[in-house]
Nucleic acid binder design. Sequence first.
DNA 1: CTTCTGACTGAAA
DNA 2: GTTTCAGCCAGAA
Length: 111
Amino acid sequence: MKRNDFYEDVYQVVRLIPYGRVSTYGAIARYLGAASGARLVGYAMNASHTQAHYVPAHRVVNRHGLLSGKQHFATPTKMQELLESEGLSIENEQVKDFEKQFWDPTIALAL
DNA sequence: CTTCTGACTGAAA
DNA sequence: GTTTCAGCCAGAA
């Protein structure tokens, strides 16, 4: 894999998140080797709309399962609606049973 | 060049 | 459970 951009890798991992699952900025950053670069992942998401391919950014939340990036979607409720449409339950801006729905690329892609 | 900010995280009190 | 602080990297001013 050519290290063109840190963002490219982020987008690729995000697209690998299964339907109805969620991951975290930290998990993605750790998988890419930037354990403390969680902020960059979020920053990359902010620029994800410029990408040609769709990036399911709504499946990426912070480590508490909180929809921290909702304000950056078309509408503040869009993110929750998308997640709910995938069969997830949102409670007070937070993914219900987050630990169960959590998808860790480090484990899932370690094969 | 310096400084600040951010869709974050972890440790410490 | 809470608040506070520092570290992390990229990009804009």
